[in-house]
Design a protein around this nucleic acid. Structure first.
Length: 259
DNA sequence: ATGCCTCCCCGAGGGAGA
């Protein structure tokens, strides 16, 4: 089963590029972030015509997550538990059943800039709630993954110019510590289980020719429970589509699981 | 670089992104 995460930066602007990538990469499941659309405005028919079931958790203008799946999606849950007052659409879960059941969690973790400040406080609080949900996934001892735009640069090797991010909410020590605290529950960073070393990125800013200079950062991740990591066959970043027409500023990251 | 683009809102130009 091929499972991808992709921050598309607006489903209305990105539908053609997303459809082209789906036809080429043939993923079974895609976890989408930043659909920037309410549920009713998501162009679901275009994806259903390609054989995908569509589940969305959108809001007006900002944020918004969705799941596309060639297999039926069961037990869909919208919203990260832990704060009834949080109205931002950043979390969706569902189960797909291959040879075994796999729980999928798609997430768009808050950016947090500027830090310090209320937006950074919200990011850290959201990561605390994520830690709680992640602990439940570990305790279940079943195949599950959390994937999406984490807005976390885990290590210096995950940025072309780490010094440029020293004061940024994506790379502050407290951010990276909160990310490691989740990993230490027992998750595997799928990409780092397969590929080591610098120079592998999933985001390049639209500004200042960042793509042409390969001035990127790796912030889109797939974290696997131990029972899911056992099934990991491959993980890759589809970087080349960043150079296509009207690209997102992020590219897909995908795993193949033996499930 | 408190911002070099691009998205969203809509029908101007501001908020947000990272």
């Amino acid at each position: 089963m091929k499972i991808a995460t992709f921050n598309i930066n607006g489903i209305k602007a990105r539908a053609p590029a997303l459809l082209a990538w789906l036809r080429d990469a043939q993923p079974d499941v895609v976890l989408l972030q930043e659909i920037k659309s309410v549920d009713e405005a998501f162009p679901r028919q275009e994806f259903e015509d390609l054989g995908y079931a569509v589940e969305t958790h959108g809001q007006k203008s900002f944020n918004g997550v969705a799941i596309l799946s060639k297999l039926p999606l069961e037990d869909v849950v919208r919203g990260l538990p832990g704060d009834a007052d949080d109205t931002q659409a950043r979390w969706i879960e569902a189960t797909v059943v291959g040879r075994r059941a796999l729980r999928l969690c798609g997430l768009y973790l808050p950016n947090g800039n500027p830090a310090p400040g209320p937006k950074y406080d919200y990011k850290l609080a959201w990561m605390e709630r994520l830690h709680a949900r992640a602990g439940d996934l570990i305790a279940a001892e079943e195949p599950a993954l959390m994937a999406g735009d984490f807005n976390v640069i885990p290590q210096a090797e995950d940025a072309r110019r780490p010094e440029a991010w020293a004061q940024d909410a994506l790379y502050l020590p407290q951010t990276r510590a909160a990310f490691r605290r989740i990993l230490h529950l027992g998750f595997t960073d799928a990409f780092r289980a397969r590929v080591q070393g610098p120079g592998h990125y999933s985001f390049w800013d639209y500004q200042a020719g960042a793509w042409n200079r390969n001035d990127g950062i790796r912030i889109d991740h797939l974290l696997l429970t131990p029972q899911c990591a056992d099934l990991l066959v491959d993980c890759r970043i589809d970087a080349e589509i960043r150079g296509h027409e009207k690209p997102s500023d992020h590219v897909p990251v995908r795993v193949e699981l033996d499930i």
